[in-house]
Design a binder for these strands. Structure first.
Length: 773
DNA sequence: GCTAAGATC
């Protein structure tokens, strides 16, 4: 059978099981050569009791524990109950003891004493724990029993890159500690603060901790801060690391734990003044890796072929295929379904259920990936299985049990930033070795699995970089620089980041903030800049919002800002493009996409739509989720505006300047994102950078607008500007004279055109009576 | 002729 042959084209390669790796792990050297026996005996209960008093003032159970001098034995005694150590009045439940037994079987538990020894000795600790080690749930609890934050009226914080992780881990740990979620154990994410004055352990997003740091530079509420998943190197984690590196010197009482997957632990150690490192093995099943002997020309085609081969020839087990984006995924799903139907008819294959998975999929659709694989057509027949075709959301954010086969073509969409043309865009790029490993690991969650890499072993070794570049090296840093200024970091150039961005990127950010008048010419934060940093928004959006009362439309700009900070509100399913476009026309404002979006929002908030908003959105091909989210953001921003006394005003809808005012306010924030149509008629050129661009095909704007502001630059098959609205050149000169200092423009169509406009305006001004202007 | 995913007092 052809499929059989093709499978054997994969070169077999045995992957070493995680445990073996760890035995040979040089980071673990310290485990085997020193004084671990000294703690083995532990402190006897009576010894412990003679130490300091119980921090709760209640020694009802466990032994008295001295802060930063406790032992594993003491903690375990306390955990063994019968009373809840952190809630002395409460008796521990049966469920608690059930979970406790499981917890004590986790790999981290075997090294609890070792962890305590290191934690007590050092201010900063790097902790490496692989998947399945239990680090995220257990380490914070180990810390609690030694740090005793309640005795200092402080908390232990544990950051996560994702909201869902912060929520679900907090939920789990509250159960493990037999407390109510939101009391002793809570979480804090945007739009939801699930903590109380009782809280001693708080899981939170890294962005949330960063926001807190802006108002409390020393993070005084915390006695220990744990940065989890630090290897993901999110922008917020990177900045927190730089910040905390300074905070620890100002606050000798603060302890810091950096938790990461193994790969670059030494880098963290080095960065944190050679902090000691503790490594704990994970618990996963071995995954066999296969490579293609030759490079594949068309990775999608190769991926489909591989999936079908697995279905035809491999034993029972579900398949996970990684592709790069929505359209590619939907297309692949369609093709796999077609082919598998043929296989069922012609080759007696088992049933195959195919599910797409990507972030913008409605939650109900996302949930489907967890449904059980289909049963064989008849008992004893060929196994049924499910195949999930996913973006890299399945690499870190979503874990699907039951996956035995992973197909990895080796690509993902990644953000790249080019400071020269100031364009952030998404490009399909090769993944890193670390990502490839993470993907392979998805096959070994429940039992031994196989991973088919659609590239050669040579390519894996030589062409893939070890780690993806951290986000800070791939982003426009305007909002980061503003945050750093607000964090009290004056000297950005010498701020010690783990991977300092290119000087050009920093310069661009400073320049942009200076044009936005958030920083003065000395680089100091202005009043506007301070105010802008209070909003969880990109600087351009924040400035637009803050300026909008001057244009009598802050209510409208508030709505628009919210809409621009959430995913696309227009839905356009491949099967109903025409109807979707017709529906969009109902909202179209011919002057631009911004105004069209605003029309959508107003319609959404109208009583007739609010009657059954979900249905209404469905009928009008709009994303209910996005609009709801926009509503949420709007409320949050509105509260900040009220607090900061930014006026909320509107131009009456009947006023003929209603839309014009909104368009002018757009210019106040986005004057740097303006393009002019070239005389040739089809293409546009961005001002100053002179990039040749096209209007994105989704725009409502015709080709008749000479000047437009755009919300984003997307670099896909061509250079597009997306979400565009027509503006008048005289507004540019009037609203942002510093940026539109025409003399400084490079010679060209933009310059000559703006000069004409300026001269016309000047003539008019000269003629007009002084009092009239 | 449209292409990620995660985050923000």
């Amino acid at each position: 059978m052809a499929a059989e042959q093709q499978t054997s084209r994969f070169k077999r390669r045995k992957m070493v099981p995680a445990d073996d790796v760890d035995r040979k792990n040089p980071y673990l050297a310290h485990m085997y050569n020193d004084n671990e026996s000294q703690h083995d005996s532990g402190v006897s209960l009576s010894d412990a009791a003679s130490l300091n008093g119980h921090p709760n003032g209640n020694g009802s159970n466990g032994s008295a524990m001295k802060r930063h001098a406790t032992t594993m034995k003491q903690a375990q005694t306390a955990e063994d109950g019968p009373h809840n150590y952190f809630k002395p009045a409460a008796q521990l439940s049966d469920r608690y003891f059930g979970i406790l037994k499981t917890r004590r079987g986790l790999p981290v538990h075997a090294q609890r004493q070792e962890f305590l020894d290191m934690y007590q000795k050092t201010q900063i600790l790097v902790f490496v724990g692989e998947t399945g080690s239990g680090k995220t749930t257990q380490i914070p609890q180990f810390v609690l029993f030694d740090d005793l934050p309640q005795s200092q009226a402080k908390m232990v914080a544990c950051t996560q890159p994702r909201r869902v992780a912060a929520m679900s881990v907090a939920q789990r740990v509250a159960q493990e500690m037999d407390v109510t979620l939101g009391e002793e154990v809570g979480y804090s994410i945007r739009f939801e603060d699930m903590t109380s004055p009782k809280t001693i352990l708080k899981y939170m997003t890294d962005g949330m901790l960063l926001r807190e740091a802006m108002n409390d530079h020393n993070l005084t509420r915390y006695s220990t801060i744990i940065l989890d998943e630090a290897h993901e190197r999110t922008l917020a984690t990177d900045i927190l690391m730089g910040l905390l590196k300074e905070v620890v010197t100002r606050r000798p009482d603060l302890k810091l734990i950096i938790m990461s997957a193994t790969l670059d632990a030494q880098k963290f150690q080095k960065y944190f003044m050679n902090a000691p490192l503790l490594a704990v093995p994970g618990r996963t099943h071995p995954v066999e890796i296969f490579y293609t002997p030759e490079p594949e020309r068309d990775y999608v085609e190769a991926a489909l072929r591989t999936v079908l081969q697995i279905h035809a020839t491999e034993p029972e087990g579900d398949i996970l295929l990684f592709l790069t984006g929505e359209e590619e995924i939907e297309d692949a799903c369609r093709k796999i379904r077609l082919e598998s139907d043929d296989m069922i008819r012609e080759a007696d294959a088992g049933p195959l259920e195919v599910y797409p998975l990507y972030g913008s999929l409605p939650p109900a659709q996302q949930q489907k990936i967890f449904s059980a694989a289909p049963a064989p057509f008849k008992t004893g027949g060929r196994p049924g299985r499910k195949c999930i075709v996913s973006t890299n959301i399945a690499e870190t954010s979503l874990t699907i049990d039951g996956i035995v086969y992973v197909v990895d073509p080796g690509f993902s969409k990644q953000k790249v930033y080019n400071p020269r043309i100031r364009v952030e865009s998404l490009l399909v790029s090769p993944i890193s070795k670390a990502s490839a490993q993470q993907r392979a690991g998805r096959a070994g969650r429940t039992r031994p699995g196989k991973c088919f890499r659609l590239y050669t072993e040579g390519a894996f070794k030589k062409e893939l970089i070890d780690q993806s570049y951290p986000e800070i090296l791939r982003s426009n840093l305007a909002s980061t620089v503003l945050e750093l200024k607000k964090l009290g970091i004056d000297d950005l150039v010498h701020f010690d980041l783990m991977d300092p961005p290119a000087p050009e990127t920093l310069m661009r950010a400073l320049e942009e903030l200076n044009y936005l008048a958030c920083l003065d010419d000395e680089g100091e934060l202005t009043a506007l800049g301070k105010l802008a940093s209070d909003f969880p928004l990109d600087p351009a959006l924040a400035v637009m919002l803050i300026s909008s009362p001057e244009f009598y439309c802050s209510n409208e700009i508030l709505s628009l800002t919210s809409l621009l900070s959430v995913p696309q509100v227009f839905v356009r399913p491949a099967a109903a493009r025409k109807r979707a476009d017709e529906m969009k026309e109902l909202f179209t404002h011919t002057d631009g996409d911004h105004l069209t979006m605003l029309n959508v929002y107003h319609a959404f908030k109208s009583p007739s739509a609010q009657d059954n908003p979900k249905q209404w959105c469905h009928d009008h091909f709009l994303s209910y989720r996005a609009l709801q989210q926009a509503d949420n953001v709007r409320l949050q921003l509105k509260r900040i505006m009220e607090r900061e006394e930014v006026e909320l005003v509107s131009t009456p809808f009947e006023d003929k300047k209603y839309y014009e005012n909104i368009r002018r306010a757009l210019v106040a924030g986005f004057f740097m994102q303006v393009a002019k149509r070239e005389s040739s008629g089809k293409t546009y050129v961005t001002v100053k950078d002179e990039q040749s661009v096209l209007l994105h095909p989704s725009t409502v704007l015709g080709q008749d607008s000479e000047w437009v502001v755009y919300n984003e630059f997307v670099l896909t098959s061509k250079n597009y500007i997306r979400t565009v609205t027509a503006v008048k050149p005289e507004w540019l000169l009037e609203i942002s004279p510093t940026y539109y200092n025409v003399e400084e423009f490079r010679k060209g169509e933009v310059k000559s055109s703006l000069m004409k406009v300026r001269d016309r305006a000047n003539r008019r001004a000269a003629v007009a009576p002084a009092g009239r202007r």
